[in-house]
Write a protein that binds this DNA or RNA. Structure first.
Length: 272
DNA sequence: AGATTCGCCTGAGAGC
DNA sequence: TGCTCTCAGGCGAATC
């Protein structure tokens, strides 16, 4: 389930092979992703040269020209493989981009919640990107910013942290871990969180996201790094999918509860 | 307008 | 064994 650290891992891997490389061929599968490939996709992409990829929230952007980008979103089950030979398409391979340096970028997505698109123009004016909140690792994501956005809210903190317009890139796994580290219940309402607690949340977020990036993301079921390795942050998870195991702090049982149709895992003793 | 729910999709795993 | 059911969850659309 690719969240920010998983996409960061993908972006870093792509950066090593695509910069300065020219697209020589493009394969697209028959099946429609969440958004279909744009018209003339192959025509647009073939012959283009990539410059340095970057990431915003859970999106990976590969510049292919002036204010023009190949946009990749991995959805739930999207994976990138990078190979130095031209592979026959496997099941759920939806896109293969062949480069003049003999590397091949493969987009594979079992559940097809992801998409690949081409966008143009200033990102600040883009429909997707203009709405996103700050990156969790940026200076803009700090306690006063968070406090001002949530201190009138009757929504649960779990939902507020998943809201991409508040902070961009967090998903279910990391929000569970962040709230555990912050000792705050996922059910606590935004308006009942002090600025001091906001500071704790912000610091926990930055630490967990940094550590997850360093570990190559989290492999629960779907995520693999583009080199085929797993994401090792799974080894550091304290609560996510740990129902009935023991809390690392107090040894009492981790509980699960459904909030807005999504599983939350927490320690009722430690998290208030 | 803000909050909540639904639908998209496949495969793994549970239960019978 | 094989069928049916449930679950995973990012995100935008639909609905309350």
């Amino acid at each position: 389930m690719p969240e920010l650290p998983e996409v960061e891992t993908v972006k870093n891997a792509l950066s090593k092979v695509v910069v300065g490389a020219k697209v020589t061929n493009v394969f697209t599968g028959e099946k429609k992703l969440r958004i279909p490939f744009p018209n003339n996709f192959k025509k647009i992409v073939i012959g283009r040269t990539f410059s340095k990829p970057f990431r915003r929230a859970k999106y990976c952007l590969l510049p292919i020209g002036n204010f023009e980008f190949l946009l990749i979103h991995l959805g739930m089950s999207g994976k990138i493989r990078i190979l130095n030979f031209n592979p026959p398409p496997e099941k759920h391979d939806h896109l293969i981009i062949s480069l003049d340096n003999d590397f091949h970028i493969i987009y594979n997505d079992t559940r097809r919640f992801g998409f690949v698109d081409i966008i143009k123009g200033d990102l600040d004016k883009n429909k997707i990107f203009s709405k996103l909140g700050p990156e969790p690792l940026s200076a803009k994501f700090e306690k006063t910013y968070l406090f001002n956005l949530i201190n009138n809210s009757s929504q649960k903190i779990k939902n507020l942290l998943l809201d991409q317009t508040i902070v961009a890139g967090l998903g279910n796994i990391y929000v569970n871990e962040i709230l555990f580290k912050s000792l705050i219940s996922p059910k606590r309402l935004g308006k009942n969180i002090s600025i001091k607690k906001c500071e704790i949340i912000v610091n926990s977020t930055k630490l967990i996201i940094k550590n997850a990036i360093n570990a190559g993301g989290t492999t629960i079921k779907d995520h693999i790094q583009p080199d085929g390795n797993l994401g090792y942050f799974k080894n550091y998870l304290k609560v996510y999918a740990k129902t009935n195991s023991n809390c690392a702090n107090c040894n009492s049982e981790i509980k699960e509860v459904v909030i807005s149709n999504r599983k939350s895992y927490y320690c009722p003793q430690c998290q208030r």
